[in-house]
């Protein structure tokens, strides 16, 4: 089980959180203008790196706020967390 450092509440067990998948995926500004390929990419394609991954978590059994984390999917080590709206930090 992961120990996830919520940026508001501090380190808590993974069971308190809800996963939100890849971070920084913006809704298209003009969805109707997208081609089928572009729409498919927005809808179905997400990064799946073996390495550092920027992802969203919600502290659903705590402060109920969303935030982002940089986690290495090969080791599960969390390099850092940051609040929504903050830029992605450089992984250490």
């Amino acid at each position: 089980m992961l120990l996830i450092p919520c940026p508001w509440c501090g380190p808590r067990e993974e069971a308190e959180f809800h996963y939100g998948g890849q971070a920084h995926v913006a809704y298209p500004e003009d969805p109707a203008a997208l081609s089928d390929e572009e729409w498919a990419r927005y809808l179905f394609f997400r990064d799946n790196p073996k390495g550092v991954f920027a992802e969203r978590w919600s502290h659903s059994a705590g402060c109920r706020r969303w935030f982002n984390a940089l986690r290495d999917t090969a080791t599960n080590r969390i390099h850092g967390v940051y609040r929504v709206g903050e830029p992605r930090p450089v992984a250490s």
């Binding site: 996963y19 992802e55 999917t73 090969a74």
Partner: peptide, 11 residues
């Protein structure tokens, strides 16, 4: 959560 670790969470 995505992961390439061949182990999962206890919960």
């Amino acid at each position: 959560a995505n992961s390439y670790r061949q182990r999962g969470a206890f919960h």
